[in-house]
Each structure stands twice: as structure tokens, then as C-alpha cells.
């Protein structure tokens, strides 16, 4: 294995760690809003690391660009849906 591959695999595992932490947070945190913290923040960072690790393993620029697009759209969708869920929960009185 080249040093680059070792670095990439390390980054991939770090990304996995954040996904695990986000999922554990979703299971352990007490309410809707706290769970959203776990899902939006930990998973975004996890996905960024996985995209970065995968990008290091490919020499193909178009694959790298696609990975960046995937990350961008997932972050956009997660921020938007997270905000919608929070707003709905707040209005339906689960906020207290």
C-alpha cells in the first residue's frame, strides 16, 4: 500500500466513526431537537471525510467532481430537511 492509500483508508475510517457517533446520538439523545444535532452535524462531517478519502483513491478528476457534488447536495438536503423537521416539531408543541 502506498502512503496515500493508507492516509485515504484512515480518513475513511474516521468518516465511518462520525456516522456511528451520529447514529448512536440519534438512539441515545432524549428529544427530536437533540437528535437533529447528532444527525445533521456528525453525519455531515462523516460524509465529508468519506468523500475526501474516496477522492484520494481515484486519479479521475470527474469522479472527484462527482463526489464533491454528492457531498454538496447531501449537505443541502440534510440542512433543509433538518430545518423543516425542527420547525414542524416546534410548531406542534414538542419544543418544551
Amino acid at each position: 500500500m502506498t502512503p496515500l492509500e493508507i492516509l485515504a483508508i484512515g480518513i475513511l475510517f474516521a468518516g465511518l466513526g462520525f456516522f456511528v457517533a451520529g447514529t448512536v446520538g440519534m438512539l441515545r439523545f432524549p428529544d427530536v431537537f437533540s437528535r437533529l444535532h447528532a444527525l445533521t452535524k456528525a453525519d455531515n462531517l462523516g460524509l465529508a471525510l468519506i468523500a475526501l478519502g474516496t477522492a484520494l483513491l481515484t486519479a479521475d478528476t470527474s469522479v472527484t467532481l462527482k463526489l464533491m457534488l454528492i457531498w454538496f447536495f447531501v449537505v443541502l438536503a440534510s440542512a433543509t430537511s433538518g430545518h423543516l423537521i425542527a420547525r414542524h416539531a416546534l410548531r406542534s408543541g414538542q419544543g418544551s
Binding site: G17, V24, G25, K41, A42, G46
Partner: peptide, 8 residues
Amino acid sequence: GFDVAWRA
């Protein structure tokens, strides 16, 4: 991300 992962 680090903050929430650590707490979870």
C-alpha cells in the same frame, strides 16, 4: 461534528 460525536 467533533462536539456532538463526543457527547453522543
